[in-house]
């Protein structure tokens, strides 16, 4: 590669770029190379105003192969998954899906994941669900359980051992 980023001296990672493009293809999402940087995604980005996420710039850096810069930045974790960028992209590109791919790469590389994502994963692995059944408060401050309302038992994996086995294998998989 004869292109050097003089601003941050970052090296392009062409193989990682290719991996992301392959993932997008498998998940039936558009190839990001078609992006022509109109900025419509950032103009309507729900996370931009509050957290300065710039989806068009994510795609620009991806096109350039500067994946390290992306996966090392917390900015990729600011997406609200509102899907407006994907819905409205004039080239059918899905910045939101690129962000999912990048976050997956961070997780796969063993880097620390921000917030509660590890907890979500642990919960699903061990219980099959995001959270345990909760006791809730009513508006007049009474505490109620699901059964108190006459609701049936929650549905969750029956054979937890089997379920966990399957998930542990899956957790090592890539798209």
């Amino acid at each position: 590669m004869s292109i050097i980023d003089l601003t941050s001296m970052g090296e392009p990672q062409t193989d990682m770029k290719d991996e992301i493009n392959k993932r997008l293809l498998t998940l039936k999402d558009e190839f990001s190379e078609y992006c022509y940087q109109c900025g419509k995604c950032t103009s309507g980005c729900e996370a931009h105003k509050l957290l300065e996420l710039e989806p068009h710039k994510i795609i620009a850096l991806l096109k350039r192969g500067l994946i390290d810069e992306l996966v090392n930045s917390d900015i990729i974790w600011t997406c609200m998954s509102c899907f407006k960028c994907r819905e409205r992209c004039p080239q059918k590109i899905a910045p939101v899906e690129v962000l999912f791919a990048l976050k997956n790469m961070v997780v796969a590389s063993g880097k620390q994941i921000p917030g509660n994502y590890s907890m979500y994963l642990q919960m699903v692995l061990s219980k099959g669900l995001l959270q345990d059944e909760k006791e809730i408060s009513t508006r007049d401050n009474k505490t109620l359980k699901r059964a108190d309302l006459g609701l049936p038992e929650i549905s969750k994996p029956v054979d937890m051992a089997k379920f966990m086995g399957m998930l542990s294998k899956l957790a090592m998989e890539k798209v």
Binding site: R23, L27, W77, S81, F100, A101, K103, N104, V107, A108, I113, Y117, Y120, L121, V124, G128, L129, L130, P152, E153, S155, K156, P157, V158, F163, M166, L167, L170, A171, E173, K174, V175
Partner: peptide, 26 residues
């Protein structure tokens, strides 16, 4: 009502999309 359902997978999309798709399929 059917017993045995799990998380749909969507909240784990950021963690592992292969896992998400498989959970949904399950």
């Amino acid at each position: 009502d059917v017993q045995g359902f799990s998380c749909c997978g969507e909240p784990l999309k950021s963690v592992n999309q292969m896992l998400s798709v498989s959970l949904a399929a399950r």
